[in-house]
């Protein structure tokens, strides 16, 4: 392997003496990738329970910690249950006055603005995920295979945005857009979302590439494949699971974001979180209850099979 291609990441005995920042830059993202995986994006951890474990056998009885956990699960679900139940309440106020589907009717038939916001959210999410996936994947391939002068800069730039407080990112982008004279709207929201999505795609794809066998790429090169051929026929196909989870993470993060969007959106670019925000400011609105019930159901019914489909597709 030529010197250029050695991965300078963190091998060798010198790793203990790596400067603090570098250590953080390696450890924290790894942790994050791992959590994302475990939590929701890839859910590759499914096989984990069968991994051999050392230690005492599983306990039989319950202990204090089990009760705490039970209480926490209640705590986590209670608000959503309340939302769900009250979405069927006939009256707008707090008290229960009878079963009714009036808020669902209102949600589907009388909420044009809400659906416009939903459409905006969807467009921004897909658009920014596409942009971030393209840029992040390319950079991950580059930094993983080659050493070049601004490689540390790329690594740092892919880490810092993640620990930067959202409000600071939002405010700085707002000031920047005002400075360059860009009108706030769909374009600025798209730019902002792509920006905060890039690091996540970069990390997930990098993690995948690091796990793949470098000798396969070497073999392709030795057999005479050009750089483009190697990229499209060897590297990218190997990275597909990372790319897919990067894309889905980006979509999720974009749909979720409120703080940054709040600062960089203008008239006509209201996203769903912004719409909900303005609805909340006007007080409790059962339409939001109905919306959240539909959203939870939609997530479960739509996103989950989609993820497993993509996963099985990726695992092929």
């Amino acid at each position: 392997m030529s010197g250029e291609e050695t991965r300078a990441a963190g091998e060798g005995p010198g790793r203990l003496r790596k400067p603090l920042f570098r250590r953080l830059a390696i450890a924290v993202p790894h942790r994050l990738v791992h959590l994302l995986r475990r939590a929701r994006i890839v859910r590759a951890g499914r096989g984990r329970a069968t991994v051999e474990r050392s230690g005492a056998p599983r306990k039989r009885g319950s202990s204090l910690s089990d009760y705490v956990f039970g209480a926490v699960i209640l705590f986590l679900f209670a608000p959503l249950m309340v939302l769900f139940i009250y979405s069927f309440n006939a009256s707008k106020g707090g008290s229960w006055t009878g079963f009714s589907l009036v808020w669902y009717e209102k949600l589907f038939l009388g909420s044009d603005e809400l659906w416009r916001a939903f459409g905006n959210s969807l467009a921004i999410a897909l658009g920014s995920a596409l942009g971030a996936t393209a840029l992040g994947t390319l950079a991950a391939v580059g930094t993983q295979r080659y050493a070049f002068w601004y490689r540390p800069y790329v690594a740092a730039m892919s880490f810092v945005p993640m620990i930067m407080p959202e409000i600071v990112v939002g405010v700085s982008l707002l000031v920047f857009f005002a400075g360059v004279g860009l009108k706030l709207g769909m374009l600025t929201v798209w730019i902002a979302h792509t920006t905060f999505n890039i690091p996540f795609v970069y990390l997930l794809v990098s993690a995948r590439l690091e796990e793949s066998d470098p000798s396969i790429v070497e073999a392709a090169r030795d057999l005479g494949a050009t750089e483009t051929q190697t990229l499209f026929k060897v590297i990218l196909p190997m990275a597909v699971p990372g790319i897919a989870s990067g894309f889905l993470t980006a979509v999720t993060l974009s749909l979720e974001d409120f703080v940054i969007t709040f600062f960089v959106s203008g008239p006509g670019s209201t996203t769903l979180p912004l719409y909900i925000y303005s609805a909340i400011r006007f007080g409790v609105s059962p339409v939001i209850n109905a919306l959240s019930a539909v959203m939870v159901a939609g997530t479960v019914l739509l996103v989950y099979p989609l993820r497993s489909f993509l996963k099985s597709f990726a695992a092929r």
Partner: peptide, 8 residues
């Protein structure tokens, strides 16, 4: 529970 939107 975290499949619901942050604001929700």
């Amino acid at each position: 529970p975290f499949w619901t939107n942050f604001l929700v």
